[in-house]
């Protein structure tokens, strides 16, 4: 709840607290005054009303005070917001390309990724474009978003500060799979990031780095999961224990799965054959509790060697690795 991963995010939270603080005070004054008046001036206690038509001083006061209050809110908020619009000279450029329903990130040296990797402590200017309809590039932990609009390039500036993995969502409605258009940003130290950018280490190295230097995500330390990201498995199946749209990978450690085969419940042993079948023909055996949303078949969508790689990975890292 309320994860914040940069100074900017903390500043936005302060603006929020300022506005909400004043608002709660006003709400309480209004509500209590209303309730007290209704009780105090009940017809039984006060059978004759006083006909008060107004009070100039009071009315001027309660116009001026709100104007003053909202002006302070405006200036405070604007001064914080500027940070996300002013591009510092040392900013790194990343091009963000949205299309139905995935993200792509382009680095200046030609590197292209599906998940975003950023160095901690350095401002980044995102140049945001769309291939088709409107999307919105939203990183809740950084408290910021900017629309990806076809035909134009929008920008926003972020300075990540905390090592960790954070969600990236699409916030502008873009059709069927709008709600599944998630990816992640991994924030790593500048040194590791430079190594990665130069091709000295791979994506997986950075994910493991994040796993070992931040909360959660510990499962990542036991294997190389790059392919699960490349093939989109992690959109529905989590590497940690969190429940997703499909069962999480650590659930494979149970050795047996309760599945629904042709309308009947049965228990199967989780072996390599089961994993292979479940990837190519997911509808034949659906894990109990996940009947609602069938997984799309991967038949003809992945190569044989990729299938074997995934099966081996899941088998050795989850089924056989009981931790």
């Amino acid at each position: 709840m309320f994860v914040s991963a940069s100074n900017y995010a903390k500043n936005v939270d302060s603006v929020m607290l300022y506005i909400i603080g004043i608002s709660v005070a006003l709400l309480l004054i209004i509500t209590f005054a209303m309730i007290i008046f209704v009780i105090r001036y009940n017809r039984k206690k006060n059978p004759i009303a006083s006909q008060i038509e107004g009070n100039k001083t009071l009315e001027v006061v309660w116009i001026i005070i709100p104007v003053a209050l909202v002006l302070t809110m405006f200036f405070y908020s604007f001064s914080v917001y500027k940070e996300s619009r002013v591009v510092p000279p040392n900013a790194m450029n990343v091009k963000v390309e949205a299309k139905m329903w995935a993200w792509k990130f382009y680095y200046d040296n030609g590197k292209v990724t599906d998940t975003l990797f950023l160095p901690a402590g350095r401002p980044v200017k995102f140049n945001i474009v769309s291939q088709d309809v409107n999307h919105s590039f939203y990183i809740p932990a950084f408290r910021i978003k900017e629309d990806a609009v076809p035909g134009r390039e929008n920008y926003m500036v972020v300075k990540p500060e905390q090592i960790g993995a954070f969600d990236i969502a699409c916030a502008e409605y873009c059709g069927l799979n709008h709600s599944l258009m998630y990816t992640r940003v991994y924030v790593v130290p500048e040194k590791e990031f430079a190594q990665w950018l130069n091709g000295e280490v791979d994506d997986d190295y950075l994910r493991k780095y994040v796993a070992s230097h931040s909360e959660g995500y510990k499962d990542y330390l036991s294997g190389s999961y790059a392919i699960l990201f490349a093939k989109g498995c992690v959109q529905c199946h989590n590497i940690d224990e969190r429940k997703g749209i499909g069962p999480s990978f650590p659930e494979l450690r149970r050795q047996f799965a309760r599945v629904n085969v042709g309308g009947k419940d049965t228990t199967v042993v989780i072996d390599k054959e089961y994993l292979r079948e479940s990837i190519l023909y997911p509808e034949t055996m659906i894990v109990k509790g996940y009947e609602k949303q069938a997984m799309p078949s991967m038949l003809n969508k992945i190569k044989d060697e990729e299938l074997e790689l995934i099966v081996d990975l899941l088998y050795s890292n989850f089924v056989k690795n009981k931790q």
């Binding site: 936005v12 603006v15 506005i19 006003l26 709400l27 909202v70 809110m73 405006f74 996300s84 978003k145």
Partner: peptide, 22 residues
Amino acid sequence: SIGGLTGLVLGSLATDVHVTDT
């Protein structure tokens, strides 16, 4: 009043770009 006061959060740039479209 709650609706109106939370409108201030949406009028403010810093907070709006976080919560708009949410």
